[in-house]
Amino acid sequence: MARVIVNPLRSPAERRNLLLGVIFASPWIVGFLVFTLIPLGSSLYYSFTRYDLLGDPVWIGLRNYNLLLTNDADFRVVMYNTLWWVLISSPLGVISAFLMALLLNTNILGRSIFRSVFFFPSIVPVVVTAFVWQFLLSTQYGAINGVLQGWGFPIIPFLANPAYVKPSLVLIHMWSQGSAMVIFLATLQDVPRTLYEAAEIDGANSWQRLWSVTVPMVSPVILFNLVMSLISGFQNFTLPWLMTQGGPEKATEFYAIFLYRNAFQYLLMGKASALAWFLFVIIVLFTVLVFRVSGRYTYYAGGGR
């Protein structure tokens, strides 16, 4: 039997369609080239140079990468802080979003109001979040320490002590999980009721229904939220920058803050570019790792992955 190979561009009509498609897509293509691809390529080039923004870049090969990995004590501190943040805050953020979604998926009175209230933190600008929490957790005048002080207890230096500051930021991170919560909520409402009914007939209690029905059914969304959280965790900047600026004692000097400091405070744009590309590699590796590991635990109704 002869195989017929159809060239989609053979007919003039098809070629015309393709051209029109490209023209209609050109604003995005141009935007991608100008604002993404060219800066990406430039930053890769700069990562092999000594470049201070105000002068011309000087090619130094792999020196920036070499210095980072072998002769930069700050880099080691920053990597520790960032990995701590990602490994603690990402799972806790996903868990808190999932638990909030579970609560709001029940038939409680005023459910819509609660949903709005729980979602609210994610639409508040991070700047506002930072200031609100700063006044709540403030050592001297925060609401929490005000109560403690009023009752004659010593205050807790949430943001002033190196040991407390990262957990305090994790707390704020968990509070602002409204977007992930909404995704979970939508997924929970898609779980077929018949599965719960069948589980009930089989005598499953509420914990067993949660563990054996709900969690497997939402596992793709758990994976999605976890991957997104990992990626944003590695890029964590705004909240710690606004609240602690890397302190106290460098306890919140995360990767993105270090990158920013090198780029715009020290004008080491070459080193900052190397940091950015190194971060890219780390994120890719982590994402691949999560996908590999999660393959065994994620359920896809269609059987695909």
Binding site: Q134, F135, S138, T139, Q140, Y141, G142, I155, P157, L159, A160, N161, T244, G247, P248
Partner: peptide
């Protein structure tokens, strides 16, 4: 040191 950091950050 914690009191100092608290004061400096908030005031």
């Amino acid at each position: 040191p914690d009191n100092l950091a608290g004061f400096r950050k908030v005031e």
